[in-house]
Design a protein around this nucleic acid. Structure first.
Length: 307
DNA sequence: TGCCAGGGCTGGG
DNA sequence: CCCAGCCATGGC
C-alpha cells in the first residue's frame, strides 16, 4: 500500500560539495537501485525515498517531510569526503591518470551493509543490468512499500535478512537469481538468527571483518572486498572482478603472463592507501571503454586521450 | 547465435 | 598454488 497522504510534502536541501558526478557514481556498479529520468536521480536510502540532481552549490536533494536532519543522506553520499586528498593518493602512473580523467567526479558511497552484501551475493557472474533487474524484483515482491511523492512510481525497502530468511529457495529462484539463491538464503538465515552480526563488523579490523564475511555462504574474496569497501568504508579493500583483472593485465602487464599470485601481490602493493577508490576508477574506466568500443568500434583503450 | 557477465565452491593435478 | 567444471539466466 503506497502512501496517498496528500499532506506529505517535499522538502529540499542543498548538500554543499564540489566535483560530484551523480551519473558516474550511481552507474559505476557499486549500487543497483538508482534510476534517472535524464535530469535527476531517484532512489531509496534506508527507509526514505529521495531525489537528487546536481546544483551549482552541490547536490540538490528532495525527500518527504518531515526530515529532522540530513545526516543519513550526507553519510550515504559521503559529501564530506575530501576527494582531492583521496585522488592525490592514487599512483601517478599513466593508466591511473587516464582513468582519473575519464571518470571525473566519481565517488564511493557508504551503503547499508545488508543491502550491499545481499546485492553482491546476487552479482556473481552477472551483468550489472541483470543485477539491477534481480534486485528490483526482490524488492518489489518482498520489500515493504514506502511513501513516495504523487506521480512517482511505487518504491520499496530492500527486504531485511529476516524477511528473506523466511522464504524458500524456490521463491528466491523465481526472482531470476539462479544458482545464487542457496547462498543468499543461507546467509540471510545466518544473519536473521543472530549467528552473525553485520553491526559488529563495523568495529572489527579489516582482516577480521574480511574473514567473517568470507565465512558466509556465497561470499568469497571478491564479494567480501566489495562489502568492505562500499558499506564499511575500508579504503584498502580491492575487489578484483573480470574487468579489474583485465585492467591489471592490459594496462600494467601488457604482453606478459603474470600469475594470479603475481597479480594479487601487485594489486595489494601498487595502489596505495586509497586502493579501493582507485579500483573503482579503473573498473568504471574499463567498462565505459568496453561499451564505447562495442558502440563505435573505433576508440579502443589506447585511443582518444593521447596526442 | 554464441560468448560472457562486478564469482564461489569443489575436486583434481 | 593452479586449474577446470559446474552452477542459472539473459544481454549484447
Amino acid at each position: 500500500v503506497t502512501c496517498s497522504d496528500k499532506t506529505s510534502s517535499l522538502t529540499q536541501v542543498v548538500l554543499p560539495v564540489r566535483d560530484y558526478n551523480l551519473a558516474m557514481t550511481l552507474e559505476s556498479g557499486q549500487v543497483f537501485r538508482w534510476k534517472s529520468d535524464g535530469k535527476a536521480w531517484e532512489g531509496i536510502v534506508g527507509r526514505r525515498w529521495v531525489r537528487l540532481q546536481t546544483d551549482p552549490a552541490g547536490l540538490l536533494a528532495e525527500a518527504l517531510a518531515p526530515v529532522p536532519d540530513w545526516n543519513w543522506l550526507t553519510e550515504y553520499f559521503q559529501t564530506d569526503a575530501d576527494l582531492p586528498s583521496i585522488l592525490s593518493a592514487f599512483p601517478a602512473d599513466e593508466p591511473m591518470q587516464r582513468s582519473l580523467r575519464a571518470c571525473q567526479g566519481l565517488r564511493l558511497l557508504r551503503q547499508d551493509p545488508w543491502e550491499c552484501l545481499a546485492s553482491f551475493i546476487l552479482s556473481s557472474s552477472k551483468q550489472i543490468i541483470q543485477i539491477q533487474q534481480i534486485v528490483a524484483l526482490l524488492c518489489q515482491r518482498y520489500g515493504d512499500p514506502l511513501p513516495v511523492p504523487a506521480n512517482s512510481p511505487p518504491a520499496h525497502v530492500f527486504p531485511p535478512a529476516e524477511r528473506l530468511a523466511a522464504l524458500t529457495e524456490k521463491e528466491l529462484r523465481a526472482c531470476k537469481m539462479g544458482f545464487r539463491a542457496p547462498g543468499l538464503l543461507a546467509t540471510s538465515r545466518l544473519i536473521a538468527s543472530g549467528g552473525v552480526s553485520l553491526e559488529a563488523l563495523r568495529t572489527q579490523s579489516f582482516d577480521e571483518a574480511r574473514g567473517n564475511l568470507m565465512a558466509l555462504p556465497g561470499v568469497g574474496p571478491k564479494i567480501a572486498s566489495c562489502v568492505l569497501l562500499f558499506a564499511y568504508g575500508h579504503p584498502q579493500a580491492f575487489p578484483v572482478d573480470v574487468w579489474v583483472e583485465k585492467a591489471l593485465r592490459q594496462l600494467y602487464f601488457p604482453g606478459r603472463r603474470p600469475t594470479p599470485r603475481r597479480l594479487a601481490r601487485f594489486a595489494a602493493t601498487h595502489f596505495g592507501a586509497q586502493a579501493g577508490y582507485a579500483q573503482q576508477y579503473l573498473f568504471h574506466f574499463m567498462r565505459m571503454n568496453g561499451k564505447l568500443r562495442s558502440k563505435s568500434n573505433t576508440d579502443g583503450i589506447h585511443g582518444g586521450t593521447n596526442t
